[in-house]
Design a protein around this nucleic acid. Structure first.
Lengths: 192, 192
DNA sequence: ACCTGAACACCGTTCAAGT
DNA sequence: ACCTGAACACCGTTCAAGT
């Protein structure tokens, strides 16, 4: 094997691009800076991805795939659906723990007017994955009936994304925790 | 008087810049495009504002001043505090009604890592204005006690901003309305 | 297969020059 | 006072040329 670690330069590019996009968005993803971080020249990026749009599409796809895997793992590891709902905000907390970054998809949702369509599709997939998981879990937990599961799932997703955004703006992860607690106290999320 | 309408070119620049920033953010605010919209050249913008950072600071300041005035007007026009809380999401709805734009401050909060400090300060002022107004109104309405007013105010603000962001991403103002209704049904906002 | 320097049209910004 | 063209270093992107 030429590459025993399995970490090829394509993955290194995706990793670095993800972190940059989580802090600066699609527009702020500078290919020269990205290339420097990976140790190559900007022109060399085009050997791995046909364009910035394609690179960002790959980044966003891998992002929701990882999110889906993480939610699956949470489901396996936590049999009680109510407990899973309590843990859900922890998945959005990770980005803040990671140098005050935010969800790639929230950032790019703001940028939707300037986003290539292929990127936007992957962003929408991320939202779907989260809302579907939440809806399923809400139903299983008996928090809402089947008529309201999807609506409530959407509401929780939007509220959690908003909390992450605000906490990032203040670089204050404690604000995120406070907001989640307020959501629980108000009844949007199941109380601890 | 040389300018009977009171609308000088400085205001025209601020108006156009606000609309652009609401759809493309600070990074996406293109000075050449802005100038063209106003009918001058990009270099001429520097006669009115020393830099893009100063222009954006003026935009953000006027934005929260207008928001504060709007909330004051809502207070005067609606004596019942509970009714005011029901109407609050309408203030965020306006941006969506305006060609699927979003709150300038939510967008720039995402961009906080790349924002000049003077702009960030004005953004924070917008948040303060909203959270203070909400906290005061929540107290007056007796929804929460003084110990929790600010926390709940923050939670409502973050959730409403998140709802606006999601609705914008889908270009679906009905989603915004559905999310607000879900917040009301869950108990985050007073029910109709 | 992978990388590069040089070039392109585009950004924010400056500045000398115009009215 | 207000505007402009030309220039600067920087963007995404291309391409011919290297190993």
């Amino acid at each position: 094997m030429e590459n025993p670690t399995g970490r090829n330069s394509r993955d290194a590019i995706l990793d670095a691009a993800t972190k940059i996009a989580q802090a600066h968005g699609y527009g702020g993803l500078n290919l020269r800076a990205l290339a420097e971080q990976v140790g190559i020249k900007a022109a060399s990026l085009y050997h791995h991805f046909p364009s910035k749009a394609d690179l960002a599409t790959a980044v966003a796809r891998r992002y929701w795939e990882d999110a889906a895997a993480g939610l699956d793992a949470l489901t396996s590891r936590t049999p009680d659906p109510t407990e899973r709902l309590r843990k859900y905000p922890g998945t959005f907390r990770k980005a803040l723990e990671n140098d005050n970054r935010m969800c790639l998809c929230s950032f790019m949702t703001a940028e939707s007017d300037d986003l290539p369509g292929t990127v936007m599709s992957e962003i929408e997939r991320f939202n779907e994955v989260n809302v579907d998981w939440l809806g399923k879990t809400l139903l299983e937990a008996g928090v809402v009936g089947s008529r309201d599961a999807k609506k409530r799932a959407h509401a929780i997703f939007a509220a959690v994304a908003g909390a992450q955004l605000m906490a990032r703006g203040r670089s204050d992860i404690k604000l995120y925790d406070t907001l989640i607690k307020s959501y629980q106290a108000a009844g949007l999320l199941p109380p601890p």
